[in-house]
Design a protein around this nucleic acid. Sequence first.
DNA 1: CTGAAAGCGCTTACAG
DNA 2: CTGAAAGCGCTTACAG
Lengths: 354, 354
Amino acid sequence: MGRKTTITDVARAAGVSKGLVSFALNDRPGVSPDTRDRILDVARELDYRPSLSARSLSTRTSYALGLVIARDPEILGADPFFPSFIAGVERVLSAEGRALVLSVVGDDAHEQTVYRTFASDARVDGMFLTDLRHDDPRIPLLQSLGMPAVTLGDPDARHAARASADDAGRTAHPYPSVVLDDTAGVVELAHHLAGLGHRRIAHVIGPRRMMHATRRDAAFAGALAEAGCPAPIVVETDFTAAEGAAATGRLLDLAEPPTAIVFGNDPMAIAGIGIAHERGLQVPRELSVAGFDDSELARYVFPSVTSVRSDPLVWGEQAARTLLQLIATGASDDVELPPARLVTRASTGPAPTP
Amino acid sequence: MGRKTTITDVARAAGVSKGLVSFALNDRPGVSPDTRDRILDVARELDYRPSLSARSLSTRTSYALGLVIARDPEILGADPFFPSFIAGVERVLSAEGRALVLSVVGDDAHEQTVYRTFASDARVDGMFLTDLRHDDPRIPLLQSLGMPAVTLGDPDARHAARASADDAGRTAHPYPSVVLDDTAGVVELAHHLAGLGHRRIAHVIGPRRMMHATRRDAAFAGALAEAGCPAPIVVETDFTAAEGAAATGRLLDLAEPPTAIVFGNDPMAIAGIGIAHERGLQVPRELSVAGFDDSELARYVFPSVTSVRSDPLVWGEQAARTLLQLIATGASDDVELPPARLVTRASTGPAPTP
DNA sequence: CTGAAAGCGCTTACAG
DNA sequence: CTGAAAGCGCTTACAG
């Protein structure tokens, strides 16, 4: 077998210079059609595969994209969002010969380190920014590192100072975003519950520092107000089933417990139903429950869980395309995906009549 | 800011040759202590970070490890194994300056392509082999590609032809394995159910082509036989909650339905409980249910799910250490982790008296 | 203990 | 349209 065939082997076999082989392979102008075909044929015959590290060194490109997930492994396992998102990303990357470099970190200090290391090692050419936070420190960090990125959802207006050299009419944040309007589904959910006669409603949300948590909170509360309902009781959690269960317990202990609880993800909703059943409450006759993300399991528990469906897979695909375009061309437009929709199932029903 | 500082900058600033800087940085012998300290100081001052791609080109090493997951995105999302496993891997890799390159593939043909591409691009220095299959084609494939690997669990004896040049007493398969005996917990579970008086027991397993599915099947059936129980009814699924639910429905439709159903993972068990409840069956009074993996949610549904706890996080850590050692030294011992244990919860109880 | 040089396998101006 | 050469930033024999 010997060594891998290199560009030198191809050049020799085709009787041309290495440079010309490189030009032919990367189909750049300045190679006559005949020569190009000959070179390509030889390369195929020799099963030539360019060396990634040699290309990387020359082009200062790693041909990889990075994703740093700052969530507890426990939650990662329970929450189906990331696996689906990653599958979507993969679908695009593998077709483009790019790889995904993944890192899972616990605390914030370590998170910073990973971003810095990915950048200074030039380990990746760009990064996906998920679970966007308020005044997200990663945005200025990546900007200062000169690292391209794409955000899932729009960042704060705070970061609106996009380089003034930009054309007018460009989006107002430093990185392109792929937006999936999750508030649409939350608003539908509020109307759904209000229409069922619920008045005392609780909202068990994810960490407040994450933008999607406060955004959905605001959308839900706004829609309820619009529907003439009192403000919901809001409980903040870390997205784990454990905290979802604990929050449910506390809510049901109230003097006037809610008749409907909306959870920030499906695992918490399923845990909430568990607590209700444990206490002998019927769902939805005595308590309505809804989740978010519409995971597979939501369909198969009893009662099946009303949820809000986003599309992490498509989100991943679009994010990957957007990031690749940004890297290739230096600019990329924001993308707006179809909004999240309410999926009504058996866990929500008419409010109990006192 | 200008260019990144290179080894040349450090050499010039320290007044030595590039080669010596390289020696000092990779602490190899042949550098006087004084010189070494001076070089290290200068490197620190200049915030020197060696270029990964330059090192890669010289050393033919990518400083990355690969994981190819061949599961449907849906299942990936429902099954907590991989996220936890990845978190464990990460914990070791990030400390060693290595990255994890991830790929999620649907079909087998694509899987082969990814392994080949990772190898021919030298994208990774070694690979994790999870969800080991019978006569797993990936083992000869990776061997032929000269790619180091570590397997989760022992592969078939078929691959026992480890190079004869090896010392005697070495493990008999081509790659080191990290073994976590899942049969121990399954056997405990069989005894648990038999002790509760169950006789008609069903086992809803994962894909038969995966070794852990048939291995657990054999262990479970063996332990039941030992306990004087009839052979279990075995149903094969693809690990999705959907198929878990469907299998449950079919089992409950039998003329003599089982009084206990054991599922190959927790999402299927939770879906199974859903179906039982939907049919008005009490769990565990009329039907006992058990899962596998002991995911977070298992604790919080109602009734809480008896399950078998492996430790994917530790599995990931050990697999990463083993693979890194294999790559560094050319050899690595097999690792045996503590066996999986039964976690008894509320979903299993005495067999109903007819 | 230290230096000068070649080499890893590409890409990319620069000549012709 | 094509070739010869330098350069990317490291590592590693080889001399001294």
